[in-house]
Structures are given as C-alpha cells and as structure tokens.
Design a protein around this nucleic acid. Structure first.
Length: 561
RNA sequence: GCGCCCAUAGCUCAGCUGGAUAGAGCGACGGACUACGAAUCCGUAGGCCAGAGGUUCGAAUCCUCUUGGGCGCACCA
C-alpha cells in the first residue's frame, strides 16, 4: 500500500536529488559524495510542511556557505507533479517546503479506503518475532510491575504485528527451580498448620495469605492425606498443586487485563527432555564451555560480559542460566528472527550473559532485544503505598484492575518510556478529567460517535469519497487534524522500530487535543450541507485512526461514555 | 570499588535518534455552556534542559568528568 506522507517525502526526495544532479552537470556543485537527503516535519508550522538540512550538512565538503548551496539547489528544482506551493531558505540554511493543501487533504481518501488498515505497513514482511513477557514466577499473584510489563508486551506485540511481523506472545514458566520448591514448602507448612500440625514456616517462604487459601483448596481435594507426612514424600504434589493454582490465578488476572499468550512455555520440560544437557554439550563443542574448580563455565567474556558464568555447579546442579541457555536455544531453533524479552529493570545485569548465549550459538547479538521495564510505585492520596514482596504485602494487578479498570491501567502503563519510573496515582486514575489521559482520548472518540448519532436522527446525508468536497475543509483546525492523521503511519513505523509503544499514547493525546479544539471552535453540522458533509467525512477518518491506535494499545474506543 | 539506567516548568512527563524561539498535562491566575456531549475549550505566568568541559555550522540529544537518585555486581532465581 502506498501512503501519502511517505509518497510525499519520497517525491520530494526525488525532486531534490534531480535538482542536485542538474546542479552538478552545470558545474554549480562538486558533489563528490552523494549527500543524504533528510526531510523532517518541523515542529513550528511557520517552517513549512517539510524541512531539510542537507545544505547545512554539505557546506563543509562543498566549500560553500549553506545558504548558497540551498539557493543553487532550489534554482534547479523542477516540480513536475506540482506538489510544492512555496519554498524558502531560512536561518543558517534550512530549506522549507510548503506543500499544496490539496495534497494533504487527499490523506482522507487514503484513510477512507484503507480504514483500519491505514497506517499498517509491511516492514516485517512476515518475519517471525517472539515477544516474551510477564514470565512471573508461579508463586504468587501478579503485582502492578507485572501489569506494566504485560501492558507493554501486549501493546508491543500488537505494534509489531501492525507493521507486518508474525508475532508470537510467550510466557515462560519458572517451574523448575528454587522458587517453586519454596512455594511447595510454604504450602506444606500452611497445610499442616491448617490441620493442627504446627510445623515451622520456612525462613524464605512466601508469607502471603494466598498460600493459606491454596492450602484450604488442597485440603478440599486431598483431605488430610498428607497430615504429618514428611515433606519429601509429598513435595511433588505440593509443588504441582501450588504451581497450578498460581498459574490459574495469573492466567485469570491477565485475561481480565486483556492479555492472552500464544504459548506458555515450561522450564521443566527443558530439563525433562534433556534440552538443557544437550544445549550445554553444544556449547562445549562450540568451544564456549570449560571446566574449572569442579564447575562448568560459560565463556561469556568472549562476548563482552564482565566475567564468565557458572552453568553447572560443583555439586552437579544446573544454575538458572543453564535453563536459559536451553530456553534461548529453543527459541532460536523455532525460527524467530527477532526475540524480544521484557524484563524488570532489576535484571539488567543479566543481559550481557544472555546475549553471550545467543552469540555463542552463532546468532547476531541484536537478534535478542531486551526491554527493561522500571518498577511502578503506587500512590494513594498522594502517598506511596509501601510494598514488600517478602511480607506478601503488595498491590496486585487484580486490585488495580478492579479499582480503576483495565483500560485505564493499560493506558497509564503505556504513557511512559519503559525505562523510566512510573508513579501510578490511584486517585488520578479514577478521576475522569483531562489529567487522566485515557478519558481525554476516549472522549474524543465518543464525541465523534455522538455527532454521527445526531446526524442519523436528523437524517443528514454523509457523503462517500466520490461525493465529498474536501476542498471545503479549509479552516486551520481542519488542516491541523489532517496533518496529524497523515503522520500516523510514520509514527507507527517509528514506534515499532524503536520498540516504543508509548509514542502511540502521545500521538493520541495530540490528535484528541486537536479534535477537541476543532470541535469547540466549529460546528460540524451546519445549514451548509456540502460543508457539513466534508466535515463529517473528516470526522469519520479521525474516528478510524483513534480506533486503530487504541486497538494497538489494547484499550477500548467507546461509542459513548 | 566496578557496571547499567535516570536527572527537562512548582508536580508528572514528552522531545521524532544532532536542527530553527525546548513542548504537553496537572497545579496557580483569568476567561468560555440559549448551538452536534463543558469528561471540553481559550488566555496568562512559569526554564542556566543537574553542573563543568569537549566534538561542529548547530547539543536537552553524542563523548569525558563531577554531583545527586534508582538498580545490579552469586557455583540465587
């Protein structure tokens, strides 16, 4: 599909390249090296629709002042298609292009034709990408930090899919290590205690009340079968029961949050089918594994890690890294060309060694992209709510979703860059005002929907693209909206390539602001039927784009609020 | 001690990968409902982009150092 903004940029680039070539053949410019034509949309409207700085960049090589170069180039421009309304040289040598308004207005036809496909590109070309996120230990309920990871991961997956990648969402279940052992011990203790056998609670156990609840469930299923039995005899059952109960909770919470995974990948299966063993053997063959002090080490320093890392301990047990080696080898073997892992920021020190693993298996370092998500602080009445995971006292995702709703929570999680701290103010999240950006954006959508309801009751015709007179969209506010809509595809592409879904929320807030501003200043439904039709046509396209963008974020676009 | 991330308006944050006079929201102050939804809009005030050097036509953005915050540095996960 061909998009307006891109084609405009492209056309302009071609025009400039031709102008340069002409200048060269006339001997006005040396052009020993081909300059890169950069075009950007200036933030100041007075600087035109497109602006280029290449004259500044060329000045040194060319040995001419940038303004002179700009003059030469402009003099050689031939605008056959007639898209340029005006050009100017500004400041030290910027070249500003003012494009004919008709060109912008035609964006509306693109949107009308492509509807929800508008802005979706195929830069992924069906390449398979995996996004692994949340991957919380199945030892307790999800907290708000997981919620942020879930919102980011899900939106990013949507975003990558929107630009043509074949995306898979995966949740890695840590069901093999120390954490689930501790879960079993904690559950065992609560079980025994509930039945009157007062055994000691494990030192590092999970203190949350939910453990006692799971113990009650276990009693319902198994009665007192395990009363007074030593832990060793029933550890497997306690582990499985506890883990399954936690996973069921996690899954329920995620669904309530609107997040679904394609694959739930169990660490245990990697051990069960000897993948871990085989992966380690392969690393040894490749020369990245060696023995020292009775342990087996990954030579991660070969790929820039600070030190080598133990994979198999002196006592023969695997470290966590061993599982991750097998897991990432497994991911790569599944044919993904890009792996995206979303981790809590406290795991950043782990990145170099996993990237070392990727490279040790012969894949480029950047086939793995780790996105760090900073922690979330919850504020209530302006005060931080203390959270201590150890004491089992933290704000759960479920609490937040019940309190403010999934839409609000998701949106707020996506209003920050992932690597900056997020203060989540519960009072603001419940407020229905400008301060709460979700409502601001949703309201814009609902407002438009309301206009169309009005149009329907009054029996006012809404023209199709054949009948609409878009040249009647001539007020400044309309131009602003149209230009914002025209930027949507570019924004989506950039957000996807940068793995930054938060850009969508900012785009939406801008667009909603323009809409509200327009709506307040101008009436859409007037006596003038042709003008009314044009405005309704514009509104239809705004509605489409808001819907598309919100859909990527996983947030509803309500018809009324 | 070493490494990673962060520092932008009173507060919460953007800033399109080096461009022109650094932008929003909230809060403050002042305005706008006899018209399609006031969950909205308009205006005013507010800044040495933590500090100091450097790179160049040009720096909030890139490099170095300093200060101040967060987080890592296991044969834990």
């Amino acid at each position: 599909m061909r998009l307006l903004l891109d084609s405009m940029k492209q056309t302009l680039t071609e025009i400039l390249l031709e102008a340069l070539a002409r200048a060269k053949s006339k001997g006005e410019l040396k052009l020993d090296t081909q300059p890169v034509i950069t075009l950007e949309t200036p933030k100041d409207k007075n600087h035109g629709d497109m602006s280029s700085t290449f004259a500044l960049a060329m000045a040194k090589i060319e040995g001419k002042p940038p303004r002179k170069i700009a003059e030469i180039v402009l003099a050689n421009i031939q605008d056959e298609e007639g898209i340029i309304a005006k050009t100017e040289i500004a400041g030290p040598g910027f070249i500003n292009f003012f494009l004919k308004q008709d060109r912008w207005r035609k964006t509306l036809f693109d949107i009308d034709a492509e509807a929800h496909e508008y802005g979706l590109k195929d830069i992924g070309k069906g390449e398979r990408v995996q996004v692994e996120f949340v991957s919380a230990n199945p030892t307790g309920p999800l907290h708000v930090g997981h919620g942020r990871g879930a919102a980011v991961g899900d939106a990013l997956a949507n975003l990558l899919a929107a630009v043509g990648y074949d995306v898979q969402r995966e949740f890695y279940i840590n069901d093999a290590g120390r954490q689930v052992r501790l879960l079993a011990q904690s559950l065992y203790a609560r079980y025994q205690q509930a039945l009157g056998n007062n055994v000691a609670f494990p030192e590092d156990g999970y203190h949350g009340e939910y453990i006692a609840e799971v113990a009650q469930d276990l009693i319902k299923v198994h009665g007192n079968t395990f009363l007074n039995k030593p832990l060793e005899e029933c550890a497997a059952i306690f582990t499985d029961f506890g883990k399954d109960a936690m996973l069921a909770d996690i899954r329920t919470d995620l669904e309530a949050f609107g997040v679904r995974f394609d694959v739930w990948f169990s660490e245990k299966t990697l051990l069960a089918d000897n993948s871990v063993q085989r992966s380690i053997a392969e690393l040894r063959e490749r020369g990245y594994l060696y023995d020292q002090d009775g342990a087996q080490w990954l030579r991660s320093t070969a790929f820039g890690d600070d030190k080598d890392r133990v994979v198999v301990k002196k006592d023969g047990e695997y470290t966590y890294l061993a599982s991750d080696i097998a897991y990432h080898r497994n991911k790569l073997a599944r044919g993904f060309t890009q792996l995206v892992n979303i981790w809590g920021a406290d795991h950043h020190g782990y990145i170099p060694r996993v990237q070392a693993v990727i490279q040790a298996f012969g894949h480029p370092k950047d086939s793995l992209h780790v996105l760090l998500v900073q922690l979330v602080s919850i504020l209530r009445h302006g005060q931080p709510v203390p959270m201590s995971k150890r004491a089992g006292n933290f704000v759960t995702l479920r609490d937040v979703v019940q309190d403010v709703g999934a839409d609000v929570a998701r949106y707020i999680f996506l209003t920050r860059k992932t690597d900056s701290h997020l203060d989540f103010d519960l009072d603001i999240a419940k407020e229905q005002s400008r301060e709460n950006p979700v409502y601001y954006v949703q309201y814009a959508h609902a407002r438009i929907a309301s206009v169309f309801r009005e149009v329907e009751t009054r029996n006012i015709p809404v023209p199709g693209r054949d009948a609409v007179q878009i040249d009647l969209l001539d007020v400044e506010e309309e131009q602003n909206i149209i230009k914002a809509l025209a930027k949507y595809p570019e924004m989506i592409e950039e957000a996807a390539l940068a793995y930054e879904p938060h850009r969508i929320t900012f785009f939406l807030q801008d667009l909603a602001g323009l809409l509200h501003n327009y709506y307040f200043k101008h009436r859409i439904i007037t006596e003038d039927l042709a003008r009314t039709g044009a405005r309704l046509f514009l509104m239809k396209q705004v509605k489409t784009v808001i819907q598309s963008a919100l859909k990527i974020l996983g947030v509803a676009a309500p018809e009324r609020m």
